[in-house]
Write a protein that binds this DNA or RNA. Structure first.
Length: 641
RNA sequence: GCCCACGUAGCUCAGCAGGUAGAGCACUUCCUUGGUAAGGAAGAGGUCACCGGUUCAAGUCCGGUCGUGGGCUCCA
């Protein structure tokens, strides 16, 4: 009996039934292609090359060129690593799970003493032995009882737990050499197909990510189809290290964190503070231009305020402990909203005032676990670019659209082009009527669609008080950072008994929107530093130009140029030290200053300057006036259209 | 919070068979007056994170505290 097999939409060929996918590939594909094939896809399922084909089948080949192919390589690498670890440590370890992840793979082991870096080298060597032995990965489907018996016999208790959680009656096992693992597959045909791998680091990880469970020992590694791709990836890791905002923050003197001051508390150094002040000015300008009004509110408030707002019920764990003042308990603010509401309530409000848009660069403090702190990205004290908007129900959709529009325009000004947008809907535990939730969720949806933004729905991930839109920015390392958030709130207006007088003369409850565009200025700054690798665009550069003289014969002239630029509002520094030009250029370059103005006898004689750009190029000699004209536009804080 | 690693001059790091500290860069001074990424010399700078223990003797060994870094489901 024969069956018809087609590969990658090619013409069907008749082959004997029961032929393996590998044989089919070998028969049908070119020599060149078949060496690259790691697995096949039948319908939507990835299958091993050893899969027997019993009926007419259309196959798709999977190679390392596709993400699925890389996944298979990495997943197999995880198995090979597990085998190596068992070979070396024997019954000392139990295997748990070992998936492929975005840039590699890991495997979690239960082991009393952690792995050392020296162990990693040993394991790598053992892995290489296993690769050299070119052991086939063989798949076997067995009943859950059989599998359980097998792993129980091996003393692999975590596997038993996993088997218990799997639906259905059968599970699949993969074996290479004497190592058997419970696994869905697929895998490489044999261990010899793993061509390039490297173990990267050890880390603790809880069983199933739950801190109530045992701490396992995780080994991270990565694998690629060839050594070149691996090298490229390792170089990329080096490059991202260079862009690390903590390193650049120190080198460029942007910010610092001090033990004596406390973890997670940011000290903005002059250059960082200058950038922040520019960001804030841009932000304020745009908010005024978009009909927002600015508020300032205190750092602390009586505990009762947080009682009313519900923060003590829902947020107390994230708040700093209370302090006693005149026998009254005060607590530092984790959010700005109750203060804005207090301002709202200073008098009776009319529907005619709506929408009310109030913004504040509000500094809040939140208790983060020490292990979660990370440079500027996760801190304990930060400034939100916060705003609260009070609207009538019929204004909601327009307001959300306005916010989105302002949001995207502001982010784009900083050169961010990649986003992930999430719409989070009603969670199980929540307040507010079904009708309100539905109306608000629809308003968010329509506004997103109107702005032409594609989004994903995060079902049930909304805050208990209302649906929200979250926007994440992608940084150079591919990490996503949540910056913008837009949340509808049915809760606080209720808790604070907010009202306005409607057209009908009766009291109504306003709808409240919380929103932050950059989120936290600290985090946003961190993302910006990595995004620009410290080379800020002219309008944000803390030092825009630096004057470099060639020798002290030009000191006086250089001083004059310096004053001229300073008066024109350019952020300018001078380096008139008795050093060689090369040396000064190098330092200015390392400080990533956009323009170096070089002044020698020539320039002094012609009453000009020569500008050297950050990228090494030179502008022709020109007068200071001409230079100012040329950079004027780009050196100022931008204005949105 | 938990697991691991780390904590020596402003920065990057060496010192580790326990015998009271070293380099490069940065900083200061002097020499050099030099055209597009480091000219030369000298000097200053450290209670080796903090607290306690072992020892004749601790940056070095042990314990604790604080801090930093990498992780803590992308589910067989």
């Amino acid at each position: 009996m024969t069956i018809n097999i087609s590969i990658d939409n090619g013409p069907a060929q008749a082959l004997p039934a029961g032929v393996s996918a590998a044989e089919a590939v070998k028969t049908i594909c070119s020599n060149k292609t078949r060496k690259k094939v790691l697995a096949v896809k039948i319908g939507n399922d990835l299958k091993d090359l050893s899969t027997p084909l019993q009926a007419d089948t259309a196959l798709e080949t999977i190679t390392a060129a596709s993400p699925a192919g890389l996944d298979i390589i990495r997943h197999s690498a995880a198995h090979i690593m597990a085998q190596a670890v068992l070979d070396i440590f024997g019954s000392e370890v139990q295997v748990t799970i070992g998936p492929s992840i975005t840039n590699g793979f890991y495997y979690d082991f239960a082991k009393d003493s952690p792995f050392s870096t020296a162990d990693l080298e040993k394991i790598e060597l053992k892995m290489q032995e296993i690769v050299n032995a070119d052991l086939p990965f063989s798949r076997q489907v067995v009943s859950k009882e059989e599998a359980a018996a097998l792993f129980e016999n091996k003393g692999q208790n975590y596997k038993l737990e996993i088997i218990n959680d799997i639906a259905g009656n059968t599970v699949s096992l993969y074996q290479q050499g004497d190592f058997v693992d419970l696994c869905r597959g697929p895998h490489l045909p044999s261990t010899g197909r793993l061509r390039a791998f490297k173990l990267l680091k050890v880390a603790g990880a809880y069983w199933r990510g739950d801190e109530k469970n045992a701490m396992l020992q995780r080994i991270y590694g990565t694998a690629f189809n060839d050594a070149k791709a691996l090298r490229t990836h390792l170089r990329l890791l080096e490059e991202t290290k260079k862009r690390d905002h903590r390193r650049l923050g120190r080198e460029l003197e942007l910010f610092t964190i001090n033990d004596q001051v406390g973890p997670g508390l940011i000290l903005w150094q002059p250059k960082g503070a200058r950038i922040r002040s520019l960001i804030e000015e841009f932000w304020k300008n745009e908010h005024f231009r978009h009909d927002y009004e600015l508020l300032y509110t205190p750092q602390i408030a009586k505990r009762g305020l947080w009682q009313t707002s519900g923060h003590l019920d829902f947020y107390a764990d994230d708040m700093f402990s209370p302090m006693e003042v005149d026998e009254v308990s005060y607590q530092i603010k984790p959010m700005n909203c109750p203060f804005h509401i207090a301002i709202y309530k200073t008098r009776k409000r009319s529907y005619r005032e709506f929408p009310i848009r109030w913004c504040e660069l509000g500094t809040v403090y939140r208790y983060e676990r020490t292990g979660a702190l990370h440079g500027l990205m996760r801190v304990r004290g930060f400034t939100q670019d916060d705003a609260h908007i009070f609207t009538l129900p019929e204004q909601l959709e327009d307001e959300i659209f306005n916010i989105l529009d302002l949001n995207m325009n502001i982010l784009q000004t900083f050169g961010f082009k990649e986003y992930e947008v999430y719409l989070s809907t009603r969670p199980a535990k929540s307040v507010g009527s079904d009708e309100n939730w539905e109306r608000a969720t629809n308003a968010l949806k329509h506004a997103l669609e109107k702005r032409g933004m594609s989004y994903e729905i995060d079902p049930g991930e909304g805050v208990f008080y209302g649906p929200k839109i979250d926007i994440k920015i992608k940084d150079v390392i591919g990490r996503s950072w949540q910056c913008s958030t837009i949340q509808v709130d049915f809760n606080l207006p209720e808790r604070f008994a907010m009202s306005y007088t409607g057209e009908d003369g009766h009291d109504h409850q306003p709808i409240m929107i919380h929103r932050a565009l950059m989120g936290s200025l600290e985090r946003f700054f961190g993302v910006l530093i990595e995004h620009y690798a410290g080379a800020f665009p002219l309008w944000l550069a803390p030092v825009q130009t630096i004057i470099l003289n060639i020798s002290d014969a030009q000191n006086e002239y250089a001083q004059g140029v310096y004053e001229q630029l300073r008066k024109a509002g350019i952020r300018v520094e001078k380096d008139l030290r008795n050093e060689k030009l090369n040396y000064k250029i190098r330092q200015a370059q390392l400080n990533k200053i956009p323009f170096m103005l070089i002044i020698g006898d020539q320039e002094m004689a012609d009453n000009t300057i020569t500008a050297r750009l950050r990228d090494g190029k030179n502008l022709p000699a020109m007068t200071v006036g001409e230079f100012l004209d040329q950079i004027k536009e780009d050196s100022c804080i931008p204005t949105l259209d």
